[in-house]
Each structure stands twice: as C-alpha cells, then as structure tokens.
Design a protein around this nucleic acid. Structure first.
Length: 427
RNA sequence: GGAGGGGUGGCAGAGCGGUUGAAUGCACUGGUCUUGAAAACCAGCGUACUCGCAAGGGUACCGAGGGUUCGAAUCCCUCCUCCUCCGCCA
C-alpha cells in the first residue's frame, strides 16, 4: 500500500495519477483528505494517551517504593489514582485502534499510483504498444493447426485426461510435450542464472501474512485456491513466496540489488473466464512459470525494470518467437503496480497474441506491506523497491512454439532448446 | 498424531513480579595508542509511532494475541513456531 507520508507529501500527484485507473480526481482527493484527517486525530489521540501512560508508569514506580518503605496508606492512595488513569487510557486505546483500522481500510483500498509514463485507459485495448513486431509473421500453410490439435496429433498434451484426474484447466503433458516443458524450464532458469539471479525452490503454499504482503490479499481473494483446513493459499505466482523472503527485513544499502529466481507451478482459479480465451493452453488453472524478482534501491528501480524487460525480450529472441511489448494503461494495470510491461507472443496457429510475461515495478507499494527496508549510509531507514517479471510463463510459450514451428514433417523445436532435448523434431 | 523441552537485541546468553529497553560476551562503528595493522583501552551500537527547527523527550515492543496486577520479559490462557523422543509415511 501507499504510505501515509507519501500521500501527504504528494497528494496532488497521486490523485491525478489515479485518474489513469479511472478514479474521479475529486473523489479520490476527498478520500485522501479523509485519510489525513483520521491520521491527525490519531496523532493527537496518541499524544494524550502517551502522556497518561507516562504518568501511570511513574506512579507505579512510586507505589513500589512506598511499599518497600512500608508506607501502605500513601501507596493505596496512589493506587486509586492509577485505577482512574487506567480507565482513561482504555478509552484512548480504543480510539487508537478504531482510527488505525479506519486508516488501514482506506489505505488498503487505494491501488498504487501509476508512473508518469502510464497511459490513461480502461482496458487492454488502451495499452500502448512500445515495441511492435515489424518483421513478417510466420506464414503457415492453409492447413496449419492450433496447438490443441497439434497436441492431440502428436500426443503431447492430454486435456481430457487432466480433466478426468482433476478438472478442466489442468492439462496433462506427456512424452515430448513433457520434455519440451522441462527443457523450457531449464533454459529459463539457466538464463536467469547467467543474469545473476539466485535460484531457489520455494514452498508452493503460503500463509495469509505472505499473501497479504505481496498484495494478493485482500484484492485477489477469489483468484487463489484456499486450503481452509490449514489456512493456506496455493500460490498464484512465484512472486509471492520469493518476495516474502524479504518480509520484515532491513537490508544494507550496499546489498542492492537482490536478484532471485524460481521455477514454480502457479495455481489460479480464473473465476469468470470464458469463451475462446480458455481454449487449450490459453488459460489454465495450473501452469509453470519461471519468475524473476529484484529488490532495489529506490533510485535504481526503473533502470532495473528496463534490464528485466531486456532479459525477457532476449528469451523470446532466442526462442525465435514473434513478440511485442506493451505498456499497460491505467485500467489494465495491476493493483500493486506502478508500471507494467506485458509481453505478447504471436501464436500463428490461432492467429492470436498471447500474454507470456508481465514485468512490473511496484516501487515501495509492496515494500510497505512487506516492511522491506534498507539502511542508508547515514543509518536512516527507507523502504526499498520491488520488481518482478515472468521469465517466462510456460503454457502459452508452449502453445506458440507448437503452432509457429509446425511443418508438414512435424514440429521443429527452436535451436536454443536442442541442447536440452534428445530430439529436434516432434512427429 | 503422542510425550517432553525451548522461543529474549546481529549472534550467543542472563534475567523469571517493581528505575530492566533489558546484564555479560562476541560481532559491528568511531576514537586513543601505533610507521601501519593487531592487541589493549574509551565511547557508541534495536525497531515502530509520536512531540520538537534541532539538541533531546514520550510511548510501545523480550514468538503472536488475550488475561491477572497499582506495576509483567517475568504469573495465567489461546495460538504459532523450533528442538528431542515415539508412532505413521514418501
């Protein structure tokens, strides 16, 4: 969430930038002013309360001394006074609690303020293409197939069997399909390692505190699978466990940047999805992803964002997939993000652009919830910035590879993957 | 799942109802000494909120949340977590 400090200091900027997400500027200003007035009340309440508590402490100390000296009567008198103080403190404590929860409720409801470069817009149609694909798109024969047909033809993915074992949206990969997936995971992890990321294998379920810290809760409650018996959430992305490595952490200034990568399956309920979007691998409940995360000094985060964008771009180039890069408009921007670039890959069999990566700078929005801070050279403490990106999401990359590289003889796998496979063609 | 023992500052480790935000050691930072370094000595060294231009105050925090008490790191309850042993299992 945004910090109160930032809201007070940059109220006009924040209100204006939130209009990109569709907020009415006056409404949001009213809300922010309400927030600030709650905070003022909270401060003066605390001030009064602290004074009382200080007095109480002092009296209690005196009572102890009086008892030691055997002056019972005086002690009893003081005790009576403390009882009165305590009553007052109780009401101040209650006020404090109430004001804090009001403040928190409002803060939790406000999304991140979009970066200056984020365009206005309602939905994906308003996203800005920052890098388009200008070369010719794969020109397939007239009888070219979409990936779900290819998957059936070459026995690579069994959607029905996955549905039988679990449910729809849980595809079962087999044979060369399974191997292709493993090759991609290894390729992505190796590339991340070359770029200086530490590889980890995190838990795939997280507790409420972790889901809260990265912003999945309370915003995306319905998108996660929830294990009621154990009060755990299946991760919707590796971002959650990776970023939570840094919950309640104070780094040193020279520890930056922290770079961590992980391969994890991701689980998403995808409630409300329908139509051709959900065909084949386009939208599934379980998919594999290699995630990259960086923890950054605030001054560096946009530079690092660019680096991450080129990292992802490089993967797509190596995979020889046509891609384009979009800057998400305010309306399409995630709740926690200040700036997000999406990567889409052209899947020639279905003649569709598929989102395969999302690279974001959260600035201090996540750090604030994570309590992820750093000490500068003067010993002062500040919030760090967090960034993450998919590098890459597997399911749709597989879809694009199958479709784009199909030939009458079979599917010719991209050269870069051949080191990871004991075959060059799927037939 | 059963039985037992723990969770205190960066780490180790005291304290087990009353100036204890917390001894001591190590680590770390600054200083003295030294040609330099080490050693020795001196000083400093948590986080959050809050008041203050600042210097410097106040409050809270000893796994988390409640409770008892004039007063709790210390007593009671609930939960979380770690360790040891037994059971079960990959």
């Amino acid at each position: 969430m945004l910090t109160l400090k930032k809201i007070i200091a940059e109220l006009d900027f924040i209100a204006k930038s939130l209009t990109k997400r569709g907020y009415n500027e006056d409404d949001i200003k009213d809300l922010l002013h309400e927030l600030i007035s709650h905070d003022k009340k909270r401060k003066s309440n605390q001030q009064a309360n602290d004074d009382l508590k200080s007095k109480m402490k002092d009296f209690s100390g005196q009572i102890g001394k009086l008892y030691k000296e055997g002056r019972q009567n005086e002690a009893s008198k003081l005790k009576a006074e403390v009882v009165v103080l305590k009553e007052k403190i109780k009401t101040y404590d209650e006020n404090d609690k109430e004001l804090k929860s009001k403040i928190d409720d409002i803060l939790l409801s406000i999304p991140n303020a979009p970066h200056n470069s984020v365009p206005h817009g309602k939905n994906e149609e308003d996203n800005e293409v920052v890098k388009d694909w200008t070369d010719p798109l794969p020109n397939l024969a007239g009888d070219a197939l979409p990936h779900w047909e290819l998957a059936k033809k070459y026995n690579l993915i069994d959607f029905e069997l996955g549905a039988f074992i679990t449910g729809s949206g849980f595809p079962l990969f087999r044979n060369k399909g399974a191997k292709l997936k493993r090759a991609l995971i290894n390729f992505f992890l190796d590339e991340a390692e070359k770029a200086g990321y530490e590889e980890i294998r995190p838990p795939l379920m997280v507790n409420e505190a972790s889901a809260m810290a990265t912003g999945q809760l309370p915003d995306k409650e319905g998108q996660m699978y929830y294990m009621e018996k154990d009060d755990l959430y299946l991760i919707p992305t590796g971002e959650v466990p990776i970023t939570n490595i840094y919950r309640d952490v104070i780094l040193n200034e020279n520890d930056f940047p922290q770079k961590v990568t992980a391969y994890t399956p991701c689980f998403r309920r995808e409630a409300g999805s329908y139509g051709s979007d959900v065909k084949g691998l386009n939208r599934v409940h379980q998919f594999d992803k290699v995630e990259i995360v960086q923890i950054s000094h605030p001054d560096e985060s946009y530079k690092l964002l660019d680096q991450m964008v080129s990292h992802v771009e490089n993967l797509l180039i190596k995979l020889e997939l046509p891609y384009r890069i979009l800057r998400l408009c305010g309306g399409d921007l995630g709740f926690t993000s200040a700036l997000t670039y999406d990567f889409e890959v052209y899947s020639a069999g279905q003649k569709k652009w598929l989102e395969v990566s999302s690279v974001s700078n959260f600035e201090s929005f996540q750090s604030n919830r994570l309590k992820l801070r750093f000490k500068d050279s003067n010993g002062k403490i500040h919030l760090a910035h967090t960034l993450n990106g998919s590098a890459l999401a597997l399911a749709r990359v597989v879809a694009a590879i199958l479709e784009n590289f199909q030939t009458p003889e079979g599917i010719v796998v991209p050269k870069v993957l051949r080191d990871y496979l004991n075959f060059e063609i799927i037939n």
